[in-house]
Simulated scan of single mutants.
Amino acid sequence: MKLPPYAELLGLSIEACGDSPPVLVMPFVADVVGRPGFVHGGAIGGLLEMAAIAALYHALGDDGGDRDGVRVKPVNITVDYMRGGREKPTRARGSVIRLGTRIANVEARAWQEEADRPIAGARMNLLIDRG
């Protein structure tokens, strides 16, 4: 799966894929530091956005959709920060809640050590442009 260019800026990589939406990993490096010892909230928000987009592309592929020529455009995003991201890799996975012909509703969760203890979550609506 090819991620958008912003994912490269954050240093994101795909850890797991297969039948479920991919898990994205953001390393703790100087580019994502906010206050000393913590991940910047904007970097966490960017990770969640990329995880949501990756989950949508995964769902479009599973539905037989042709990803070539399909573009997604964010309509809105709401991020809930639950705890500070510390000096360790941060993971995120998106989940498509509703996939319509023009709009998709996607959620994403970010965590560090335990997936059931998220540091942030997001809800996002995306416009699907099938060209």
Results as ranks from 00 to 15, higher is better:
2 K>D: 13
2 K>H: 14
4 P>E: 07
7 A>V: 05
8 E>T: 11
8 E>V: 01
11 G>S: 01
12 L>E: 10
13 S>K: 14
15 E>V: 13
17 C>S: 04
19 D>R: 13
19 D>T: 06
21 P>F: 02
22 P>R: 06
26 M>L: 05
28 F>K: 12
30 A>P: 00
34 G>P: 01
34 G>N: 08
36 P>D: 01
37 G>Q: 10
39 V>R: 07
40 H>V: 07
41 G>E: 06
42 G>K: 11
44 I>F: 10
46 G>R: 07
49 E>P: 00
50 M>F: 00
50 M>P: 00
54 A>F: 01
55 A>I: 09
57 Y>K: 15
57 Y>C: 14
60 L>T: 05
62 D>H: 12
63 D>V: 00
63 D>F: 07
65 G>L: 08
69 G>H: 11
69 G>F: 10
69 G>K: 11
72 V>P: 01
73 K>A: 13
76 N>C: 09
76 N>A: 10
80 D>W: 02
80 D>A: 14
81 Y>Q: 10
85 G>R: 02
86 R>K: 14
87 E>W: 02
88 K>W: 00
89 P>L: 10
90 T>E: 05
92 A>W: 03
94 G>R: 03
95 S>A: 15
96 V>Q: 11
99 L>D: 01
99 L>T: 04
99 L>R: 15
99 L>S: 04
100 G>P: 03
100 G>A: 09
103 I>L: 15
103 I>F: 00
104 A>P: 06
104 A>H: 03
106 V>L: 04
106 V>R: 05
108 A>I: 02
111 W>C: 08
113 E>I: 05
113 E>D: 15
115 A>W: 07
116 D>L: 08
117 R>N: 05
119 I>W: 03
120 A>W: 04
126 L>R: 02
126 L>I: 05
128 I>D: 04
129 D>G: 01
130 R>Q: 02
